[in-house]
Computed example of a mutant assay.
Amino acid sequence: MSVFNKIIILSKKLASSLLKDEKPTDLEASDIFNDADKAYILKNLTDETLIKERLNLANQVKKKEDWEKVKSNITKPSVRFLYWKYTAAAAVIGLLATTYFFRGTLFNNSNECMPIIVNNNIKTGTDKATLTLEDGTIIALEKGNNYEAGNFKSNGEKIIYQANNRSNSKIAYNYLTIPRGGQFFIELSDGTKIWLNSETQLKYPVSFIKGETRNVELVYGEAYFDVSPSVNHKGSKFKVINQNQVVEVLGTAFNIKAYKDETNIYTTLAEGKVELDFNGKKQKLSPTQQSNFNLNTNALLVVNVDVYNEVSWRQGVFSFENKPLKEIMKVLSRWYNMNVVFINEEIGNEAFTGVLGKDQNIEDILATIKNFGIINNYYIKNKTITLK
C-alpha cells in the first residue's frame, strides 16, 4: 500500500474520531504507518512553510463558508449533523491529501515532459439549468438571472416551489435539465430538497395532490434527495422513478446515479430507509448500503460503501478511493464539459485515490494526477484532453 493511500485511510480514521467525539491518538497512526513511512513523511511532508503555501494555493474545501451557507438552509437536526459529518471528513482528508498532492511538484527532481496546451477552452462547471414548463415554454436559469412565475422563483442558482394549498385533480409537470458543466438545486412544493449533478434531467409536479403518493422521475443523470417526511404530508409516500427502478421512501436522504451512457443504476442510502423495486423484485437498503442494478442483465448487487465518496460531488469536491482513471475522467468530463482520449487504454485502469476541488481548473487537476505517476503527460486542445 502506498504512503498516500495510508494517509487517506488515516484521515478517514481521524474524521471518524471527530464524529464520535473521540480524541484522535497516535495509536491510530502507528497502526498504519511503519518506520519507513514515518521517515518519508517527516522528510517530505512536514515543511511548515511549504504546507502553508500549498494549502493557500489549493484551498479545495472552503469548510467554514460552505457550512454556514448550508446550515442557514437546514432545520432538521439529523440532516444538520449529516452535513457536518461530510464537511468534517472533507476538511480532514483535504488537509492531508492536499499536502501530499503537491509533494510531487517540489520533491520530484526528475526531468518530466511539460504538458502541451493549445487553446484551452475547458471551463469549470457552474450553476445553470433549463426549465421546461408544461406548455413547452423553455427558460434558461443561470447565475445572476432572476425569474419568478406561478408558485416558483429562481435566482439562477436554485429554484424554489411554494406549497399550493389547492386540491388539484390534475398534476402539472415541469422538467429541469442540467447540461454538462452544470449543477443545480431545487426545492419541491412539499419541501423535498434535491441536488442535481451535471448532465441530469428531473421530471416533477409543480404541486402535489394532498394524500396521494408524491412521484418524481429522474429521467437520467445523478441526484441527491433529502425527502420531506411522509408524516408532514398526511402519510403520503414519496417515490423516485428511474427506468426500471422505483425507490420508495418515507423520509430520508439518498443518492441515485443513472446516466444515459451507463448500464448500471447506483442507489446509495445516506440516512433513513428505502425500498427499491426492480421490475417487481424488491430490496430494502440500510444507511451506507449501495445497490447496483444492471439494466442489461437485471442483476442486483448490494454492498456497503463510503457514503462520503458517493455524495461529495454536491459539496464542492470529488472524492475518489482506488477509482480507475477512466471512471474518474468520465466524472470530470461531465463537470468540465470536455472530451477525454486515452492514447494507451491501460492507463485508464490505473487506480487513483484523492480529493479534488470542483472549483479547480482542469490543468491543476491533471497536474495532480500526473504527479502521482499515473499519466506520463497530457495534451489539451480546445475542449479535448489527450492522456498518455
Rank of each mutant, 00 (worst) to 15 (best):
N5I: 00
I7T: 02
L19N: 11
I32G: 12
F33I: 00
D37F: 02
D47E: 12
A58P: 00
Q60M: 14
K63C: 09
K64P: 14
K69R: 06
N73S: 15
I74E: 00
T75W: 11
P77W: 10
V79W: 06
F81N: 13
A88I: 06
A91H: 11
T99D: 04
F102R: 07
M114E: 14
T124R: 13
D127M: 09
A129W: 01
E134Q: 07
K143D: 14
K143M: 05
K143L: 04
G144V: 08
G144E: 13
N146T: 03
N146P: 00
A149S: 15
F152P: 07
K153M: 05
K158W: 07
I160S: 11
K170A: 08
A172H: 13
G181L: 04
S198W: 03
F208W: 02
K210G: 08
G211P: 04
N215G: 13
Y220C: 06
E222Q: 09
V227M: 09
H233C: 10
H233I: 13
H233A: 13
G235Q: 04
S236M: 02
N242D: 13
Q243T: 01
E248Y: 03
V249F: 01
L250C: 08
I256A: 03
Y259C: 10
N264M: 14
N264Y: 12
Y266T: 03
T267W: 02
A270N: 06
K273P: 01
K273H: 09
V274F: 05
L276S: 01
K281G: 06
Q283V: 04
Q283L: 07
L285M: 10
S286Q: 10
P287Y: 07
A299N: 14
L301S: 15
L301N: 15
V302F: 07
D306P: 01
G316Q: 03
S319P: 01
K323M: 11
L325Y: 02
K330R: 14
S333F: 07
R334T: 15
V340I: 12
A351I: 06
A351P: 15
F352K: 01
G354D: 02
L356C: 08
K358W: 03
D359L: 09
D364P: 15
I369S: 07
F372E: 12
I375E: 01
N377A: 10
K381V: 07
L387I: 14
